[in-house]
Write a protein that binds this DNA or RNA. Sequence first.
DNA 1: AACGATTTGTTCGTATGTATC
DNA 2: TGATACATACGAACAAATCGT
Lengths: 279, 279
Amino acid sequence: MTGPIYRQIAEELRRRIESGELPPGSQLPTELELREMFDNASRNTVRDAIRSLVTRGLVVTRAGQGTFVVERMVPFAVTMSTDSVTGLGGGEGVAYMGQARAQRRTPEATLPRVEIQTVSELIGRELRLDPGAQVVSRHQRLRIDGKPWSLQTSFYPMSFVEQGASKLVEAKNIEPGAVKYVGETLNLKQVGYRDQVLARQPNEVESAFFRLPDSGVAVLESMRTAYEAGGKPIRCTVTVWPADRNRLVYNVGAVPEEVLLTVADDQPGSASVSSATGS
Amino acid sequence: MTGPIYRQIAEELRRRIESGELPPGSQLPTELELREMFDNASRNTVRDAIRSLVTRGLVVTRAGQGTFVVERMVPFAVTMSTDSVTGLGGGEGVAYMGQARAQRRTPEATLPRVEIQTVSELIGRELRLDPGAQVVSRHQRLRIDGKPWSLQTSFYPMSFVEQGASKLVEAKNIEPGAVKYVGETLNLKQVGYRDQVLARQPNEVESAFFRLPDSGVAVLESMRTAYEAGGKPIRCTVTVWPADRNRLVYNVGAVPEEVLLTVADDQPGSASVSSATGS
DNA sequence: AACGATTTGTTCGTATGTATC
DNA sequence: TGATACATACGAACAAATCGT
């Protein structure tokens, strides 16, 4: 056919996977078997083909065992906003909102690791602080059913601590919720927030914590900046999830209640695949 | 050190890139030069190291030219929701909202490619249609400044057409906006929507349209389901963007106006990198 | 616990093709 | 046209992980 050999092999395997001939969880032929199947191509050529499937997230390789079609777990729906039902006017721990909605699963968080840092350029712009200003960062690792789920870091202006919100620098959970605590202590009420959502490749720390394979799985990152009534930013929270088992849900305006309780249980990409077919 | 040679080489190169010693756009040493730099490792070993950097999105290779540190373009902020300023109670083309906000850039869309399909399981669940029901799909490709930007497909129940919204099956832009047209024709008013955001590896069509490299760049997908006052879904829109040059912005509640107009111009991952450092 | 068989992972050498300048 | 640089392909050997005996 056309194109390099490793690509032809990869395409053929992809066809068999997507047709269901190689169902999720099943083992691919070994590299030696694939060699024979494809005109005695070199083992390295077969491995190039497999590598391209790994990068696309279609298969995983396990040393000593074989190569397997990925079994996607049920994606977890993280509710990021709900106008109608919850009516979250101001108070509660916005950063924990999604976690609290863990349907039928039990979330747990490590104690926060608290640091006082010179603000980065990025966070400084969000919190509208001068370069060189100090911020409190509170970092947590969250798990669901014991499995790593998200990494989260919240940044507050150090001035909040000086003005009396001293619990911010304690490495303990702030019980009524950090936003509520800051609101009560400093008389600041959260009236809105802005989420910036992006996807990127994981860094080393994230790969290790989430136990991600060498490649193929991106992470979703949300940077949430919360504002008080005067329009001043109160805090900035950066949360990172592995993209293969999470989706972020934003409800805007009136959304039927039964939909709000729905758990997403489909395969990602299905919609666009069908829509994009046939240039 | 520890670990395989190609990993050591990759780590060393990554260090030089992130320290600024190899700034964005600069050329890496050639494979032969890298061979000499790293204890006369095999050229294949050097290539393995570079490949891992490509997969992480740190460098790109160009045949005949060399390997270069990636230059990220300014990420485009796609506004997905604004409660306060725009006050989008119901009408306007929700799916085009983000595009209309193209700051200082000129968006253009292809004419819609219209198809009548049997509904997929995924879309059927969103639109609450029975299996086997028919839907109208309207597919568009959007560009900004002539460069590919997003792929978008909207699905409507075929019953809408039978009830009089005949423009839905015409391969032309619906001028007042499709949602408005449906609303006026069928007396349905959009009162809310639900966005599901995920990230995944691009499929073939997407890779081709967005001209994505073989690996390293994920796509962001948003599936937006719009609801009318009775709680019935009106339409479902799936939009896909390349993740390396877009971020989705959700404004909830009161967000200061000057923030709404801000263009994001930072590097992704900066926030979490600093926060995650030091386990 | 030890061993062998199987399977993927790493590393090397070499040759040739293709893109770019 | 030639030189340079990455892309593809092959063969070979040994390492490391896994599993069953």
